[in-house]
Amino acid sequence: MTLASREQMTAKAPIRRWSMAAEPWLYLSPALVCIVTVLLVPLIIGISYSFWKFSAFKSQFAGLDQYRAMASDTVLHDALVNTLWWTVGSLFFQFFLGLGLALLLNRPFYGRRTVQALVFLPWAVPTFLTGLTWSWLFNPLIGPLPHIFYALGIQSEPVTILASPQTAMWGPIIANIWFGIPFFAITLLAARKSIPSEIYEAASIDGASAWQQFTKVTMPFLAPTIAITVMLRTVWIATFADLIYVMTQGGPAGSTNTIATYIYVSAFKALDKGYASAIAMLLLVLLIIYALLVIQMRRSLLKDA
């Protein structure tokens, strides 16, 4: 190698190292630019709104007034309880029914492809249509469900469950379960398929029963996927206002009013975006704490595995 070319190489080296380091950022930049300008900047502006009081003619700085108002807001208190109930109720059934479906679909059987396409279909149904379809099914004029419930003795007369504060929340929850099962089924089926079959062969040679294989092999392997999917779903459900908005609009008598629908109503019906932002801030903080806890849990799971 001549001296000249060696010199050339050393001169190039820093540029090269710099461009190597910059390469991943180059690929990431469109995504980051988009997220920062369309999500982060509005989010920060949104947070600043929560310290203001807006009205039609003037807006004034309100400090922590909006947050103080939250403490004595009984509607908000009920909405918190409803949010918990809505999230846990939907998530519980979505998860276990989705896990069951994933395990069923993992076994080979005749017509599995068709069955898979059919059972995953609800995921493709637009949420507003999910909401509409289920409220029609609960409608005694054109839907069968009230009559079925009546025949089974669950209801004393065939009326829609959406009209009674005691039962209304079940409407959106059932619709949400229907819509959400495929998400868990798809992700858990994918994770289940990536477990090497040798592990099951070894387990059955060692005399492990089906139940033992499930608890000792399947579940530990699925755990990281479960952690991340449950986390994402929890957050999505908790902030998900469409279904409830379409089916009950938070009623009757506020019985299906969750934080997400309450923010929506405060911001766009009551036009109080300062207060709406303060409530959204509460939800955001709760969700971020929850997300960080799950991420931490998942890390320790991965370390053990």
Binding site: A31, A260, I263, A280
Partner: peptide, 26 residues
């Protein structure tokens, strides 16, 4: 890299309704 992944994950927790009024204005 970890920060970027975390940022992406946290965007999932943003309540839509919080960014709607600012986005509407922008």
């Amino acid at each position: 890299k970890a920060v970027v992944s975390l940022l992406l994950l946290l965007t999932q927790t943003f309540p839509l309704v919080m960014v709607i009024p600012p986005i509407f204005r922008i």
